[in-house]
């Protein structure tokens, strides 16, 4: 059986440094998989390679059985895999609605159709009342929501979330968490990179742990919390894992 996403021996070198080293894992439809690891473990590099914004030095990424490594990011998006960015990346001089429309244009040719779709998405992320506000005037929480909204508008089957909780207050994190959980309950598969353990432990069906570019553990939240290799990697940061 083919998995939704299969990552095989994925490797990326920057000069002499291997940021991601022969990483392999898979995801199935409807799953939420967490990708964690200490700073510099290679999580975002891995994201960049899966989403097409960076070419892998070695290895392949398969999405619904098709090899997507080597494709450009916009081609990957067309195939139903979209990412968000760790640091929000809005189009500052465009309104919230127009921001989301850019995503919607991936599926809709006409402006009217894209606008309708974007309106729907704004409703879904509870941003309808901000539709005409310029992105540069939105708060961080709103921008984080918008970031998800833009990605949703491309109608992805698999959504890659890069640290959606970073920089938010605990209350805001709950807010984003509820949104993400809702998306999953509606059938969307999610690959989540996150530093905030509360988010990852709560959300993920399975967790892949990276350290220095290699996979050191994989399993449910409970399993990895007991894994000595993981505890080792987070030594000094065990407060996070507990």
């Amino acid at each position: 059986m083919t998995h939704l996403l299969e990552v095989e021996n994925l490797t990326r070198q920057f000069g002499g440094l291997t940021a991601v080293n022969k990483l392999s894992f898979y995801m199935d439809q409807g799953e939420v998989v967490g990708l964690i690891g200490p700073n510099g473990a290679g999580k975002t590099t891995c994201f960049n390679m899966i989403s097409g914004s960076m070419r892998p030095s070695m290895g392949t990424v398969r999405f619904r059985g098709e090899v997507i490594s080597g494709l450009k990011a916009h081609q990957v998006t067309k195939r139903g895999l979209t990412r968000t960015f760790q640091v929000v990346q809005p189009f500052p001089e465009m309104s919230a609605l127009e921001n989301v429309m850019i995503g919607a244009f991936a599926r809709h040719r006409s402006r009217q159709a894209a606008e309708d779709k974007a309106g729907e998405v704004l409703e879904r992320i509870a941003m309808k009342h901000k539709a005409t506000v310029l992105a540069r005037d939105l708060t961080l929480l709103e921008l984080k929501r918008l970031e998800i909204g833009k990605a949703l508008a491309t109608e992805p089957e698999l959504l890659l979330l890069d640290e959606v909780a970073a920089g938010l207050t605990p209350v805001e994190i709950d807010d984003i968490l509820a949104l993400v959980r809702k998306l999953n309950s509606e059938g969307m598969s999610l690959l989540v990179v996150e530093h905030v353990m509360k988010v990852i432990m709560n959300l993920s069906h399975r967790i892949v742990v990276l350290n220095f570019g290699s996979k050191i553990s994989e399993g449910t939240a409970k399993e990895i919390a007991k894994d000595p290799a993981v505890l080792d990697a987070y030594l000094g940061e065990e407060g996070y894992v507990a």
């Binding site: 450009k72 990346q89 189009f91 850019i102 995503g103 991936a106 040719r109 402006r111 508008a153």
Partner: peptide, 26 residues
């Protein structure tokens, strides 16, 4: 300016990386 190309062109100006990730062939 009012059709898909116009919007996409502006999105490229505003944030190329984000545009690419949203399916815009920058």
């Amino acid at each position: 300016a009012g059709r898909r190309f116009g919007y996409r062109l502006i999105s490229v100006r505003e944030n190329e990386e984000a545009a690419e990730a949203l399916g815009v062939g920058t």
